[in-house]
Design a protein around this nucleic acid. Structure first.
Lengths: 199, 199
DNA sequence: TACTGAAAGTAGACGTTGACTAGTTTCTAG
DNA sequence: CTAGAAACTAGTCAACGTCTACTTTCAGTA
């Protein structure tokens, strides 16, 4: 009869994955260190070896969220012809899909923090912003923007997509309204930028 | 010696105001029904007469937040000349100021809810949306939009401003970057919409 | 005015949680 | 082989949300 080993061997990863599932299925309020420990079959103090406190776990979740979102956007963009408008659409749609699947996680990623996000989260968020910047850089190659405008325009596009996602996750609008909104946003964005340059 | 009266007389209002202060100064995690009761000088069970549970208090806070935000936007808009671009700017700036002053409350207002927001919150949110729609309607009068586009364009503008606010409250960008972003957003928005019509 | 039911508040209890501490087992590097 | 670090256990504590039974006050009506 195999006694379970003293060392779980994998605890940190298991806790994070269970936590993501709980977040997805029951929201952040249902996320308890003790419950995670129970379901992982370890004592209630065990998570402490990997996360100093609950906030540390939440930060790790947010960090992973940013990394995953960035990857999913990159992935989505890579599977679309090299047309800038379609690229924007692919990126924004991937963002919205993420929001749809993990609303509580997205909340967590952009939650207000007293002294700003911890370094690990900040850098993961920058990774996402880096992906967005890459997409906009491609737009420069395609002649859609001036290089000097990429910074502010990336920010504007990111904010818009984030705002649309928020409206969806907070149930202010439906998913399909969200999809329509993305079309509108990209259309207005591209025309607006173009008009700013040649107007 | 005046014994404090059995009936507080004002408890609900006092709890809400204290709660807003706590939210503003220490964030949502620091918001405890028992602490609110203590500071109001009532027993720990007293709040239950006015809010069935903690969630009910949070919902009431979100509701008031929407009402206040809507009022502040209307107020800001009213104090600006009847130029549409400047009106948009006044509205967006008021929104951002609200976010800046009450980041945790804004989070709460747009937090993910399992089954969507309760009716009271939903209707307060619609009040905000109503104010935004009114602003856009004025844009129709001024010839900036087709009447048939007001719905989607109001949504787009609201999402964009909300997204910018989120970037600021989550400390992804500074307040002054947020202000610049608002300028960019409105500029691109107006030109983009105009180009869509006459392009 | 006295009465009565509803509303508002009290007091105590319960289970759960996050956090802390001290001690134990396992791993790992020298 | 051994020492020290890392991982985990077990027990404790205060705080919280919630629930229940009870008491005080208020407001409307007979």
């Amino acid at each position: 009869m195999s006694h379970r080993p003293f060392h779980h061997g994998n605890l940190r990863a298991v806790l994070l994955e269970q936590a993501e599932a709980v977040l997805r299925e029951r929201g952040i309020d249902a996320l308890s260190l003790r419950e995670l420990a129970r379901e992982a079959g370890v004592s209630h103090g065990a998570p402490r070896s990997h996360f100093v406190d609950r906030k540390a776990l939440l930060d790790a979740l947010a960090e992973r969220g940013f990394v995953r979102l960035a990857d999913q956007i990159r992935e989505a963009v890579s599977q679309v012809p090299a047309d800038h408008a379609r690229t924007l659409h692919a990126a924004a749609s991937a963002y919205l899909r993420f929001a749809e699947r993990d609303p509580a996680l997205l909340d967590l990623m952009f939650a207000t923090k007293a002294d700003g996000p911890p370094e690990a989260v900040r850098s993961a968020a920058e990774r996402l912003f880096g992906v967005m910047t890459g997409i906009m850089d491609a737009g420069v190659e395609a002649g859609a923007y001036d290089r000097s405008d990429v910074g502010r325009l990336t920010l504007l596009l990111s904010a818009t997509v984030q705002g649309i996602s928020t409206l969806v996750t907070s149930r202010r609008i439906t998913v399909s309204q969200g999809e329509t909104l993305i079309d509108d946003a990209i259309s207005v964005f591209l025309r607006g930028v173009s008009a700013e340059r040649h107007g």
